[in-house]
Nucleic acid binder design. Structure first.
Lengths: 122, 122
DNA sequence: TTTATAATTCCATCATTATCGAAATGTGGA
DNA sequence: TCCACATTTCGATAATGATGGAATTATAAA
């Protein structure tokens, strides 16, 4: 993953309403929720929600599909996974294994800092 | 970790210069770098860098210590680790194991989605 | 002290983001 | 076709964030 993409994703999540939307969608994965349902559950005006959904879509954090008159939004787990991968890779010093922590929380007591290098293509 | 803290950290990272500063400090962990060295390496004016360092400090992503006339900034790995923990916890559906991916990248072929719940205190 | 250097704060300016009512667009049912 | 409803876009406003020169503070060497 590129820097710029990471920044886009981080910025998309770094906002109260958007993080709430994303977390709500995670609770309703993988089907997702209609925009109207999100707006109601979070008490957001339609226009405001639409603005935030566009940001989340643009960051690749959510996808949308039409179903009848409704548009369903669902989380794109892969994007979150890539972000976590990016952060894990870059919270670790190249030279030293300074970041056993991040890896350890996933595989407690296993390896130390084996976040495998991602191919530069992603 | 609380929502608000997560948002603070995400926002701190969601900016080109700040992400560059953080990544540079990671490369120089655990000693860190003096502000002047950071400014020079990244080509940032002092005032601008100082502003960004304050943001990173406020988010708990970096710490500072004085050494002679210099102030050294170093990354706080634990904060990044907590953020990754927060994201991992919340990219996974409570009800279903929709997020094997994030866990899998840390322990490939191991468990599915065993991101253990963090105590609500953190 | 005085002087040189490191870093922060101040302040004004510019740019971006968030908010939301109202109007427009899209979609399916009557 | 006409209507009802879901959602987005428009547009105006307010709030927040980023930038960097100049002045200020802090630290240590001369």
């Amino acid at each position: 993953m590129q820097n710029r993409q990471a920044i886009t994703i981080l910025a998309a999540l770094a906002q109260e309403s958007r993080l709430a939307v994303y977390r709500l969608l995670i609770e309703h994965a993988p089907e997702g929720l209609a925009a109207s349902a999100i707006a109601e559950k979070l008490g957001l005006p339609n226009a405001t929600l639409s603005f935030h959904l566009k940001e989340l879509s643009h960051a690749g954090l959510v996808s949308s599909r039409q179903s009848g008159r409704f548009i369903y939004y669902a989380p794109v787990i892969e994007t979150m996974d890539e972000l976590v991968g990016y952060l894990t890779d870059h919270c670790c010093s190249q030279s030293a294994g300074t970041c056993a922590t991040a890896a350890a929380r996933c595989a407690p007591g296993k390896r130390k800092s084996t976040a495998r290098r991602r191919s530069t293509s992603a």
